[in-house]
Design a protein around this nucleic acid. Structure first.
Lengths: 222, 222
DNA sequence: ACAAAAGTGTTCGATATACACCCATGT
DNA sequence: ACATGGGTGTATATCGAACACTTTTGT
């Protein structure tokens, strides 16, 4: 009755050089040969949608256990010239430390900054816009932002993540007060030295405190 | 490669007797024979997802041009015992005035209150929970609530819609101040008399003012 | 007169915003 | 000594929450 093929596409975000980046693969064959695309592939007969997305993610980056969330499904007839394809789009957040060599498989793959994207295949520009918007919104009422940082980080780095996603500067004092009020950071003994300036204190995300908040319905990140 | 069938399911909300209601159809055949289900059907080869959802909606209720939004896609293998089916779920809001006879086609269909649902087929209980949650959230930062009311309505009726969706009472004065502050209601000359009490002023949703707000990025309902 | 729903303001706490200087370190 | 990023507090505006009485009508 409906011979529609189902794929998952996974928008994989990271932070690089204080900017929001996304992993894209270069298409080697038509259609859109030479254009860049969001990594993805067909859903296998026996796997769930999220499972398929995690598989694609791991094939592409080698990482597991990352933040992954379903974004939206795109299915206009004509979005793929080869036939009817409905794609269930997901987005994932991976921290720079885990950002292994992109493109474990043969295809060319690289990180692109969201504010300087190349020509994109299919309706992938739309999917990226949508993913970015979702991420921006989620940032304001969840703790997804922490997913883009390594285990220990400085407050400045955290602020840079927020700024990279929101695309605007934030006030340092207000930002720190807000984070402090959330009460989900544990200060570490170590500091980070990086050149000729005062060392910055390191923190880590406190899952324990976070759980308490989530149980009160304040947050909803995983 | 992937012989997955794709359906759309449409959670159709309305307000009845000041409660949130949903349209369900009774299954006449196995599996889940006799259980109630969210209306839906296969996506046709040449139609888009939203288009398919609107078609199902119209087939089921006869109405067009209603608020319709994609909810989430469900695709666990095993969610349908007959085979692999991925469903793209939507939800729609229709006002009581437009609430024509449910079930234009042969199948038995009726409105159920969200706080007293029958046994549901497939994973439809999960889909309904999800839809209700989305609606609750959207209510707080958009104007979707107005979609559930006829063109003219009283402030008390509007408040009842909010209460029905949120599942808790709201303070009348705070509620009215908030609505007033939005500046999207136009008072009408008419009043509504209904028994032995003071008549209530009627209002209508002011699209013009609403547009201005939306352009400022305050609201995002259509 | 009374029952029933409509209508109307103020106070308080919490939260968001705007804003500028000193501190610790490497060179 | 100076250049670099780290760290800190206060004042104001805005928003949400709590709370009770008067008004208008039908019977």
């Amino acid at each position: 009755m409906s011979d529609i093929r189902v794929t998952v596409d996974v928008v994989i975000f990271t932070i690089q050089e204080s900017r929001l980046g996304v992993l894209l693969v270069r298409r080697g064959i038509p259609p859109f040969e030479g254009a860049w695309a969001i990594p993805g592939g067909f859903v296998l007969p026996e796997e769930g949608l999220e499972q398929a997305a995690r598989r694609e993610l791991e094939e592409e980056t080698g990482v597991r256990e990352v933040y992954l969330e379903q974004l939206y499904s795109f299915g206009n007839p004509g979005r793929d010239p080869r036939g009817r394809v409905v794609t269930v789009a997901y987005y994932a957040l991976i921290s720079p430390e885990r950002k292994i060599q992109a493109g474990s498989d043969a295809a060319e793959a690289r990180w692109w900054p969201m504010d300087g994207l190349p020509e994109l295949a299919f309706d992938h520009a739309e999917i990226l816009r949508y993913a970015h918007e979702r991420l921006r919104n989620k940032l304001e009422y969840t703790t997804v932002g922490f997913q883009l940082l390594p285990e220990s980080f400085t407050l400045t780095e955290l602020q840079q993540v927020y700024q990279a996603i929101l695309g605007r500067p934030l006030d340092k004092r207000n930002f720190r007060r807000k984070i402090d009020l959330l009460g989900i950071l544990t200060p570490l003994k170590e500091q980070r030295r990086q050149g000729p300036s005062r060392p910055a204190r390191l923190y880590r995300f406190s899952a324990a405190r976070f759980e308490r908040l989530r149980d009160k319905g304040i947050l909803f990140p995983f």
